[in-house]
């Protein structure tokens, strides 16, 4: 009941905020732009005889989508706890008979609902495509969306944790983006580390792991990794909320 109350309050906060509409519109414009360019590329490949939609369309589009998510998730997570701290409302609700975990669950689920809405909007492109060209590669498409969903859940859990560390929304957004970029670049510089180290780093790279989903492959170890990642950051957020004395003493 209390989780639901926080969930609905947060959903409402998103939809009365002009910032959210700017974020949503920009996200849809960018994701549709990438869909269009990937579709043109797929059409060009099709003319050349390579018509595998999984490699030429889905995989390209999901790779673009993960990049857009990296930029946009910080914008939807930045206010979740930073704003509460800034307004002083966190101190107020923390003295109500509500557990920190319930506050976090309500906020996390609301952000997830907004994220699902954003992703569902991108699915409309595929529905239109199927309407014209008929269904193809549906399982691979769903696997790709599962990957995007797990990536989104992971990024949101990380974003909400960073938001719990500050009362400045801009700092929360930049900090979250910085961590995402770090996860993105983790395996880019192959010369930086030895092969053995690189193997370990690949295991921690969210963005490398997600590529298997884009190829239509769902591996339980990847699902387990994302689940652990989410759980880890949510636990860190609960610990951060419990460490009130640290941020109270800094004021």
């Amino acid at each position: 009941m209390k989780i639901y109350a926080i969930f609905t309050k947060e959903i409402r906060s998103y939809f009365v905020s002009p910032t959210f509409y700017v974020v949503l519109t920009t996200f849809l414009v960018l994701s549709n732009y990438f869909f269009y360019t990937d579709l043109v590329f797929y059409h060009w490949m099709n003319i050349k005889g390579n018509s595998n939609p999984i490699e030429a369309l889905f995989s390209f589009y999901f790779n673009d989508l993960r990049f857009i998510l990296m930029l946009f998730v910080p914008l939807i997570t930045m206010r979740l706890l930073a704003e509460e701290k800034k307004l002083g409302t966190f101190e107020l609700i923390a003295t109500y008979p509500v557990r920190d975990g319930e506050i976090l669950a309500g906020k996390y689920l609301s952000c997830l609902a907004v994220f699902i809405l954003m992703i569902a909007a991108t699915f409309l492109n595929f529905l239109l495509l199927f309407f014209w060209w008929g269904f193809f590669g549906l399982q691979a498409l769903l696997a790709g969306y599962l990957g995007i969903f797990l990536l989104g859940c992971s990024l949101i859990s990380c974003g909400i944790f960073i938001s719990s560390l500050t009362e400045n929304q801009a700092v929360a957004a930049m900090g979250t983006l910085g961590i995402f970029v770090l996860f993105w670049f983790l395996t880019w510089n192959e010369m930086m580390a030895s092969e053995a180290v690189l193997k370990v780093m690949v295991r921690f790279s969210l963005f490398d792991r997600i590529e298997y989903f884009f190829k239509g492959v769902i591996e339980s170890k990847d699902v387990a990794f994302f689940t652990l990642f989410i759980f880890f950051f949510l636990m860190m957020t609960v610990l951060s909320l419990k460490a009130r004395s640290i941020w109270v003493s800094k004021k």
């Binding site: 309050k9 409402r12 307004l87 002083g88 409302t89 107020l92 109500y96």
Partner: peptide
């Protein structure tokens, strides 16, 4: 609280309803 923190985007009744649910 001294600062009387409130959610500025809510109406008075909505704010009190939310707080009553939490209570």
């Amino acid at each position: 609280l001294e600062k009387a923190p409130v959610y500025p985007e809510m109406r008075v009744v909505e704010f009190l309803e939310f707080m009553a649910k939490l209570k």
